[in-house]
Simulated scan of single mutants.
Amino acid sequence: MAVIDGRRVIAWTPYGRRRTYSILIKYLQRDVERGLIDEVWAFMNTDPTGQEDDVAYAHELAEQHGWFKLKHRPEGINLGRLPKQRYTGLAYRYMTDPNSVYLRLDDDVVYLHDDAIANLVRARLEMPAPVAVFPVIFNNAICSHFLQACGKVPMEWGEVKPYCMDPTGWANGPFAVKLHELLLDHIERDAVEDLYLYQDFPLAPGTQFSVSCFASLGGTYAGLPKPGVLVPDEEESWHTIHQPLATGAPNIIRGDAIVSHWSFFPQKPFLDGSALLGRYREIAEKL
């Protein structure tokens, strides 16, 4: 069994897109084989029609790997006619083991630095008070703000304010292209650690933050009035606004754990028109 400091580590993803998840799974497999991750869960968040290839790929992975598990929306819960992104909060009903650390990753996280999982999980265990401990997520507006503050990302590309939907950091396609180029350059010359932040950064309770990747504790969900049931049920607002305000503890960005998140929808035309995803795929294929 893979453990870090005596705790099981379960990496999970609201799953929907083979195109990018086929890159992420290479990193998750690497870290399972290194003994850092115990299980990988795909919480199936797909449409009933039009995503047959995506669904088939997840089933293939489950057949190939004993550590890869499919999780489905709990039965008997009708949230009405909501976009599928709103169903991801239901996944936490599976995350009530107080001895496990749960590592959430968007299905378009396309890079995990060698030390990202170990550093993030150890930070999570050292700091039990925050609801969520985040890595430095490339292509996350608030992380871009701190990367600029630490001199890692040029201000000349456009200043990013500490707001999760900042017009530059969240919606500007050319800025996202430059960010990915910067990170890929560092990956390709084995210099990612040069992009570490000088310190961990706290996020004031109530600060909305894009939850593309974070570590949380099973005990957090086990201790809820109904174990695993988030109120409100939207996971981003629960983890970054509601629960930090309720506890008074800031969430934390860990300075020495780096991952890359591919795209927010306003950036998509610019990123999809580039060769950057192919570069990420080539790097992952060499693992």
Rank of each mutant, 00 (worst) to 15 (best):
M1T: 05
A2F: 05
D5F: 04
R7Y: 14
R8W: 05
R8V: 00
R8D: 07
W12M: 10
T13I: 11
G16L: 00
T20E: 09
Y21P: 04
S22G: 04
I23D: 02
K26C: 13
L28V: 08
D31E: 03
E33Y: 11
L36T: 03
I37V: 09
I37T: 03
E39A: 06
V40I: 13
A42S: 03
N45P: 00
D47E: 06
P48Y: 00
T49P: 02
G50W: 02
Q51C: 01
Q51F: 01
E52K: 03
E52D: 10
D53A: 10
D54K: 03
V55W: 00
A56L: 05
Y57I: 06
Y57L: 06
L61W: 11
Q64K: 15
Q64P: 00
G66Q: 02
W67A: 00
N78H: 01
G80T: 00
L82M: 11
G89K: 12
L90S: 06
T96D: 12
T96N: 10
D97C: 02
N99P: 02
N99Y: 08
N99H: 10
N99S: 14
L105T: 11
L105K: 09
D106S: 09
D107G: 07
V109K: 07
L112D: 01
H113T: 08
D114I: 04
A116M: 10
A118S: 12
N119F: 04
A123Y: 04
A123I: 06
L125S: 05
P130W: 12
N140H: 14
I142S: 14
C143G: 06
C143E: 05
A149R: 07
M155I: 08
M155T: 10
V160S: 07
P167F: 03
T168M: 15
T168C: 14
G169S: 13
G169N: 05
N172W: 03
A176C: 11
K178F: 09
H180I: 12
H180N: 14
E181N: 13
L182H: 14
L183R: 10
D185M: 08
D190R: 14
A191V: 12
A191S: 15
D200F: 06
D200Q: 11
P205Q: 02
T207R: 07
F209Y: 15
F209W: 13
F209T: 09
S210C: 12
S210K: 07
V211N: 14
C213R: 11
F214Q: 01
A215M: 10
L217S: 15
L217H: 15
T220L: 15
T220V: 13
G223W: 09
D233Y: 12
E234I: 13
E236P: 12
W238Q: 05
H239Q: 13
H239A: 14
H242R: 15
H242L: 14
Q243N: 08
P244E: 04
P244C: 03
A246Y: 14
A249H: 15
P250V: 01
I253S: 00
I253Y: 04
R254M: 14
G255N: 02
G255L: 07
D256A: 10
A257S: 07
A257F: 08
A257I: 02
I258C: 01
H261S: 05
S263P: 02
F264S: 13
F264Y: 15
P266V: 05
Q267Y: 07
Q267R: 01
P269C: 03
G273C: 08
L277H: 06
R279K: 10
Y280M: 08
A284F: 06
E285Y: 01
L287D: 03
L287R: 11
